[in-house]
Design a protein around this nucleic acid. Structure first.
Lengths: 217, 217
DNA sequence: CGGTTAATTGAACGCATTCAACACGAGTGG
DNA sequence: CCACTCGTGTTGAATGCGTTCAATTAACCG
């Protein structure tokens, strides 16, 4: 039932079965290497994408070179759902990726299926909600809270003991509206307070969930 | 044709005819007085709304009282398109308003009309794009640039010589992720540079479009 | 091992905030 | 018409958070 689906946490929700199925049938699976670009800012919007393996990042760059990371996408996530005609964001593979791609036109032609349209709408709505949370984070949170919220969201996605950070500090900074130095300082600070622990640069685990939650909202 | 429609500037685009028509047929027109609440954060998502007259603001407040304004809506705009089950934002009338309201269920029942679903999807997509622009503004722009971008967007909406500001300084600040004092300082600064002029607190016009554009991107 | 990139740390700076005082405008009543 | 008040906006001075610039350290990879 589609309604119950919409109640899910937008961070972890998965696209509706109808959509997944159609994409598998009509689309192509492609692989991208680490740091490869999937589409560029300004490209025509031609495809819909579902990430099967790996992690990707969307970002946009202003005329004078400032970069804003839109979001990070994990296996199961749809991305590239832009208004078009051309991409406002670029998408790059953070790790080696497998991506199911399907032409928009193919999906549209196959439609008439109201359930399919609904699934795309649901995916767009979840995207909207995530972006709105991002707005709150950028507009009204301190550096410490931003970094805490970011680690929290990763830890929620990946419930394993040790959470992997597929992105570097610069990506985190550009997502959070901070500099790498500030991100780094906040990470060591959170570690100093024994709230999280970093066995290596790209790996951490939460030690005090409650303290982290209090920082986040 | 729906495709051409999606190419429009999301700030000024209007909902597709199909949707407008259905909302008029099935909905009710209600009036709200200045400062009245249309729905509250946490309320069930029951309706879709189209603003007929006036200006409204959506906002959300964190547990510790920090406020983030989501957006401002003008006549013709759809709002309240949230993921549900309950509103993450509240909506308040900035001026006396007339609002066309229609139950989600009514729209859904009337559907089967693929065009209708498409129209809602389009509206959601435009909303998404606006929020994404908001992210860029909050994450990577200085106070001066934020205020300039805000005035710019208002001036584009309202092509008349004198643009009215339906919102107060606090609303602007909470939209831009700043304090009222900073907003005020930037306004006087932009006025000092003869880029804009304020004949009164709630009214301005652009004097140097080019200088303003350069500040915005 | 070096050589290279990424991350951390330190110190000085600057933009936006905070706290406080002041100005302005609208509304009310004498 | 003026005096008073209240809400809203502006301005000033001091503080502080995050940035900037620079140096150092750590990880990765041949």
């Amino acid at each position: 039932m589609t309604l119950a689906y919409s109640l899910d946490d937008p961070r972890t929700a998965r696209p509706a079965a109808a959509l997944t199925e159609v994409m598998d049938r009509l689309g192509t699976k492609m692989t991208f290497a680490r740091d490869e670009e999937i589409y560029a800012q300004g490209d025509d919007v031609e495809f819909m994408y579902r990430l099967a393996k790996g992690v990707i990042r969307t970002s946009r760059v202003t005329a004078d070179g400032r970069r804003q990371v839109g979001d990070f996408y994990y296996p199961g996530d749809l991305f590239g759902l832009e208004v078009g005609p051309d991409h406002q964001f670029s998408a790059e593979a953070l790790t080696d990726c497998e991506i199911q791609m399907v032409r928009r036109g193919s999906v549209r032609a196959f439609a008439g299926d109201a359930e399919l349209d609904r699934a795309i709408l649901e995916a767009t709505r979840r995207e909207l909600q995530r972006v709105q949370d991002h707005v709150l984070l950028l507009g009204r949170k301190s550096a410490r809270e931003k970094v805490a919220a970011f680690l929290m969201s990763l830890a929620q996605r990946d419930p394993s003991a040790d959470v992997e950070l597929p992105m570097g500090r610069q990506d985190m900074a550009d997502y959070l509206g901070l500099t790498i130095e500030t991100v780094s300082r906040m990470l060591t600070q959170l570690q100093g307070d024994a709230i999280v622990e970093f066995p290596s640069f790209r790996r951490f685990h939460v030690k005090k969930w409650q303290a982290l939650e209090e920082l986040v909202d």
